[in-house]
Amino acid sequence: MSTPSSRFAGHGLGLRREHYRDFLETDVPVDFVEVISENFMVEGGQPRHILRQVRERHPVALHGVSMSIGSADGLKADYLRRLKSLADEIQPLFVSDHLSWSRIDHFNSHDLLPLPYTEEALGIVCRNIEMAQDTLGRTMLFENPSSYLAFGDAAMTEWEFLRAMSKRTGCELLLDVNNVFVSATNHGFDAHAYLRGIPAERVRQIHLAGHSQGTELLIDTHDSPVHGGVWSLYAEAIALTGPVATMIERDGNIPPLADLLKELAVARSIGEANARMRQVAA
């Protein structure tokens, strides 16, 4: 079993192209940055050069979107080799991906597709996680996805699946609070029960993001500020997990960095309030 990730309780932002200059030329007040791993799993050129420069200033978390941990036909060795090369160089805080699948046979959807929460899927996911962690030589974090489809043959809830997966493989969790909110709304489950059901002690990082109302369902769009209901759920989440690395994810309608830092300040203040309550309670 891989060594667990160290606890890190800072506040960060996703590094996006629009803010490269800010991060390279100014002292951005964040405790870490998160990058999309695949954008830097290239052989050379400016992307890796920029990441090296940012890494000199900030701790970096690697967040992948293409491992496809739920693929029935296993993981791709070439993908893992590229990710290991990047992780070995960057020495990230965390290496994470999603509890989802993207690829089967020769087809790669490049989307985070839903898994049925069955015993068969649990076995396959755990086998793939063990392969990834063995190859990378580190414990990985897996993020709960937003989903728009539930399977009728599910044998357990998503939080039960996450708990079993974490227990079997030793993997840790990236709790996306917005995804809990979106999926709970779409599928009608209790978001509070979800937070109480996951193994809070395994959560190493939290994502916060915005979503949009689709025709019938909430859509995880990352193109707007964090919703009020998500902030409330975040306060509840960190009361359970204790202080963990927290960040704002923004992938569309990207505003000036100052706007994201204001949002991040909200997360900091909620964290501080939670810490005070813990002190009082102690």
Binding site: G70, A72, I104, D105, S109, P116, T118, E120, D153
Partner: peptide
């Protein structure tokens, strides 16, 4: 339907 069959059905849905 097992996981592999579901994923191939999903591929079929996305593509066609």
């Amino acid at each position: 339907m097992n996981l592999a069959q579901m994923q191939r059905e999903f591929q079929s849905w996305l593509v066609t």
